[in-house]
Nucleic acid binder design. Sequence first.
DNA 1: TAAAGCAACGTTAGCGTTAACGTTATAGCG
DNA 2: CGCTATAACGTTAACGCTAACGTTGCTTTA
Lengths: 338, 338
Amino acid sequence: MEMTGKKRKPTLAEIAKVAGVSLMTASRAINNRSGVSPEKREEILRISDDLGYVPNRAAQRLSGGRSHVVGVIAPLHTSYSSELVLGLGSAGRVANYEMLVYSISTSTHEPPAAVIDLLTQVADGVIVVLPNEGQYLTRLSQANLPVITIDEGPPLSFPKVVVDNYRVGQMALEHLASLGHRRIGFIDGDARLASVRDRLRAFRDHRTVLGLDPDENLVAQGDSMQQGGFRATMQLLSLKDRPTAIFTGNDVSAVGALSAIRESGLRVPEDISVIGCDDIPLARQVYPSLTTIRHPLTQMSRAAVNMLIAMVSGFAPPTDTIVFAPELVERESTAKLV
Amino acid sequence: MEMTGKKRKPTLAEIAKVAGVSLMTASRAINNRSGVSPEKREEILRISDDLGYVPNRAAQRLSGGRSHVVGVIAPLHTSYSSELVLGLGSAGRVANYEMLVYSISTSTHEPPAAVIDLLTQVADGVIVVLPNEGQYLTRLSQANLPVITIDEGPPLSFPKVVVDNYRVGQMALEHLASLGHRRIGFIDGDARLASVRDRLRAFRDHRTVLGLDPDENLVAQGDSMQQGGFRATMQLLSLKDRPTAIFTGNDVSAVGALSAIRESGLRVPEDISVIGCDDIPLARQVYPSLTTIRHPLTQMSRAAVNMLIAMVSGFAPPTDTIVFAPELVERESTAKLV
DNA sequence: TAAAGCAACGTTAGCGTTAACGTTATAGCG
DNA sequence: CGCTATAACGTTAACGCTAACGTTGCTTTA
């Protein structure tokens, strides 16, 4: 019912004229607002469909309406946030919202003011994925439109959707302990991220709770990337009394750990168990596939979108923070200590 | 000279009022058009700066002007295109254009019509990175705004920026041949991509030219991903007379090849040389680091942006296709045949 | 039965910007 | 000196849409 090779897109006025109604009646019908009789509404919708009508977002927004566009700011070079952005996209589409993404390239990069301005002009709201520090958050907060973040950011008090990262650490440790491991290594990530700090804190706390070896040499510094995981693992393996299991700050580091272990002539999970967290797609693809603590990314992005849309519609968010529980995914990289 | 905690952004009218000139004079001054005396222009610019004026893109576009936004459609889950998008971002920023990205998730996924419409409304032009088949390209071509692609797409005749992929295959093969290799394996990628087909063609052609072993068993099917590279390599290694070098369709496959070789108890490059292509960041990070055929991504994205901006400004593109030459990057994964 | 309520519409006035055209002053020329 | 070309402005009318308010006709209620 469209896709006739027409050049110019029809405007609302043309729809209205064809339907023999006023501009506003057409507007109301198309935006699903009250004040139109069911029959007229249906006819208007049919005509709009026939003519391939597409609302002009710029005009919508300009006249004070909603554009039905959500801006997303995310570091797209990590598959964790890529997954999240994908989820946001599909969640948004269900609610008749489209996502426009600005990609921040490195952990220190921040979007230029022009982008923020652009986003605040074209979008009804903004979702910031894995926010880092930066001027742009201030600018966003001044822009007078709803903003929420996924994962904790600098303390700027946007409503947020997060994972209970303390629980992530706890679950990983409990899993390994239940398999009989007593000497467990931890590979730390970028300490600027609250999530990373929480996991380390949980690791230390529950090491005590579970009666595991509290040796601080078992905590090695990674960088949340493959290379850092590799090096940190090498360091752990070089200990006189090396760990029988390793918990890494994220899956990417875990993959680095896998290759380090393999290169050291050891086997996973026979000689050493490895558990990651995040459950990015890569976790399933590597050999051996990774046991990991999954973040429910799909649900998180759905929650974020719904929360934002509610705010766009004028409702105050019910909670400032929505916390999601992580989930253990057992695969091949962990096994009982022999 | 801005960033005063103001809530509402000033409009052009306010600038004009403060400067004591008409709306149009302010518009002309700010858009760097003729018809304003140098002194007035300077004063208007100063005032606009003082007040933190930001043009309203929606209004600009609505009134038929340019929004200075470029839409990008790209599969962001591959680091190849991520890199490209990064490059587009910085190239655009230099020219005072900002990029807004729509991420396509899989090779079969295509952006919904609503996104295309949105992009065509907010953007002055669109760059499609690694275009796949799909309705959306048709819809884009009907939208009456400049579109260019990076890498070859379905034959829809958008102007494009490409790499000479035939030359890529040639260079890889010549490099390996110069190191003394005679039995060289090839790991094919997704045959729907023209680039992949070109490389295979070059492989076959130059195998003959260089007098190498033309055994067709040396061509194994991958999938442009790590797993496919792994499996294809395993297949090559299982040949009675296994290759002494492997050329993979991209770097990701090469990484899969590396682990396959390692797992087979062989060493790179002592036992087998591996050469990839693309030169994604990962290529430098793996061990051993990958010799590869680099695509000049930065230059390519710069060219794409410039080409698009020229088209936006009303110039026909000088050429339909800008071809970039690849470049050999020698690292650790290739060595002389002993 | 008259007043009031309400659903279903229509009209008007912008939103912030630029294209197109109109106006004014100044300079240049024979 | 009168005429015109030109630079430097100003005015007006859109662009496509929606909020706010009017209007109409019908139903409800005291």
